[in-house]
């Protein structure tokens, strides 16, 4: 089966800085739920943004369903790390979600009947239909995060990319979002950045540890020594061999 995402020899550096990603190879299967874990500055967000075609690699290549990310934007959903500031905005949940139907210059994107129906379906998918007329500033942190997830789903993406989607919300809302994400596979491929090993172990099919190099493990391999390695300042010392059992890709 062709992978949903194929990364070969990926290298990326922010301007004027040392590379955060080097010689990265990774395959993600269609319908897979992949978690990405690693210390701050390891390149997790950069990797997600490279997949979302927000950043461009310095070397190597990425294929999304066999094509470059720039050509596959219409089937990629992205949820950013930081929710936008919304307190001053007169914007309802349904307006926000409708923005997920925009693409390129299309001036009336999001305004057509089919677009509205797809946005409503996205709201239903995250169980937020009842809150569609609410202003964003009237939502709790968890509800806002679900609205942002619905905006990403409005494009009906085959690949859903989430950068720490539950970093700013309480545990109950966090559990709800992870359960929603789990339900989205195998219809969609889901890639989530998180610092929470318990959630990744509970929900992900595989976990990519990113700390200088990339190591992909099965969830049951995320034991204490492996976790210690994932956040180690000396990642050149390899993690215990047991942890790498079941790894592929």
């Amino acid at each position: 089966m062709n992978p949903a995402v194929r990364i070969r020899g990926l290298r990326f550096a922010h301007p004027g800085q040392a590379p955060v990603l080097q010689d990265l190879d990774l395959d993600i299967a269609p319908g897979e739920f992949l978690g990405i874990l690693g210390p701050n500055g390891a390149g997790k967000s950069s990797l997600i943004q490279l997949l979302a075609s927000i950043l461009r690699p310095d070397a190597g290549h990425i294929d999304i369903l066999g094509r470059p990310p720039r050509e596959m934007r219409h089937c990629i959903g992205y949820v950013p790390q930081q929710p936008p500031p919304v307190r001053h905005l007169p914007i309802t949940v349904s307006t926000l979600v409708g923005l997920g139907r925009l693409h390129g210059w299309r001036p009336l994107g999001g305004a057509r009947r089919a677009d509205r129906e797809r946005a409503q379906a996205a709201l239903a998918e995250v169980e937020l239909t009842a809150l569609a007329p609410r202003l964003l500033r009237e939502l709790s942190g968890g509800e806002l995060q679900r609205a942002l997830l619905a905006r990403a789903l409005a494009a009906d993406p085959a690949l859903l990319l989430l950068d720490e989607p539950t970093a700013h919300i309480d545990p109950a809302a966090e559990s709800r979002i992870w359960a929603l994400l789990r339900r989205m596979t195998p219809a969609r491929t889901v890639v989530v950045v998180s610092h929470d090993p318990a959630l990744l172990t509970a929900h992900a099919d595989r976990i990519a540890l990113l700390n200088g190099t990339l190591r992909v493990i099965a969830p049951d391999g995320l034991d204490a020594p492996t976790l210690q390695w994932a956040y180690s300042r000396h990642p050149e010392i390899p993690p215990p061999a047991r942890a790498l059992r079941g790894a592929a890709g």
Binding site: I54, L89, T95, L99
Partner: peptide, 23 residues
Amino acid sequence: GLLHRHFLAISLDEAFARSRGIP
């Protein structure tokens, strides 16, 4: 009238707008 949704998209969240191919 033509671009208000684009204005809103880039005002809310530039990274998301880029992911949708909005210039």
